[in-house]
Design a protein around this nucleic acid. Structure first.
Lengths: 153, 153
DNA sequence: TCTTACTTTAGAATCATTATCAATTAAAAA
DNA sequence: TTTTTAATTGATAATGATTCTAAAGTAAGA
């Protein structure tokens, strides 16, 4: 069985990059935290557990490289740090996010939902869409539930 | 006739802030560059033309204040600086952006377009939407035209 | 083995943003 | 009008994320 790492390795080779031990460790961390939205610093700290000799600069370079190859997406929720998010394999577009203003949780929406909107934008603005970023800010279901149970709120 | 500045002044007063000369100069710059997406540094340089004694920190503070009052929106296109964009008066939500990957131009879409999508998200994910950020990355009509005229492309 | 190109590390440098603090200004109270 | 109080500002220092640099390491091909 071909693993996800193998396929990423092929993508790197196709662009004439090597999957060095440092790069592999970084990718593994991203795979192990697919649900999260890690900053470079977060990734660095996690990678150090499996490859203690790695340097922060290498993590930054690797993340940049993976972004270039569209294996990860770099995203910014306005808190001063860039976050890195693995793309679903084969996904044409980046998935969407729900950011809770109350607890700060970030949930993902894998469904596209934007087909119609993109059709309108392409035609009406004559803009050839390659990718998108869509983030909703609001109150997540957890905080919603919490405050409806708690009469003090 | 009540001007836009007057209305902003009222919004500040309602939140018990003053429209100081520095703040007024900053707002004027934003009004005069409504089409642009200025960084704090950009705003600072422009404000200096009409209020040379102003400090960079004050510009940052003013932009933060205006963001808090939802008079401007802070947005990040991934180039390492925050940009500040006046909200349309009375707009419930932030407008969308088209970022050209070729020439870097940023165009605005004032139409909402997301009503249906937001309805789905609110219901299906039980998420109470307060605002959104939507940016499309692709090729703008100008670059599109250019390359269709130029056979070398 | 020799050469070449790629990659890494550690730390310095850079750049945007935020914090500090004394000085200024404006409004409120007397 | 004077006094008091709180808000605001400007200069600059501090912070924190990210990028750059230079020397050393690594791997692959000739």
């Amino acid at each position: 069985m071909e693993t996800r790492i193998d396929r990423i390795k092929k993508q790197l080779h196709a662009a004439s990059y090597k999957l060095t031990p440092q790069r592999e460790a970084t990718v593994r961390v991203l795979l192990d935290h697919e649900e999260d939205h890690l900053s470079a610093e977060d990734v660095y700290l996690l990678v150090k557990d499996i490859a203690p000799e790695i340097g922060l600069a290498t993590v930054y370079r690797t993340l940049e490289l993976l972004t270039e190859l569209k294996i990860v997406d770099k995203i910014n929720f306005g808190d001063g740090v860039s976050r890195y998010d693995l793309r679903q394999e084969g996904a044409a577009h980046f998935h969407h996010h729900l950011v809770c203003l109350e607890c700060g949780a970030v949930d993902e929406i894998q469904e596209d939902l934007l087909e119609d909107v993109e059709g309108v934008v392409e035609k009406r603005w004559n803009f050839q869409i390659k990718d998108h970023r869509l983030t909703f800010h609001g109150i997540c279901w957890r905080c919603h539930d919490r405050s409806s149970q708690d009469p003090s709120q």
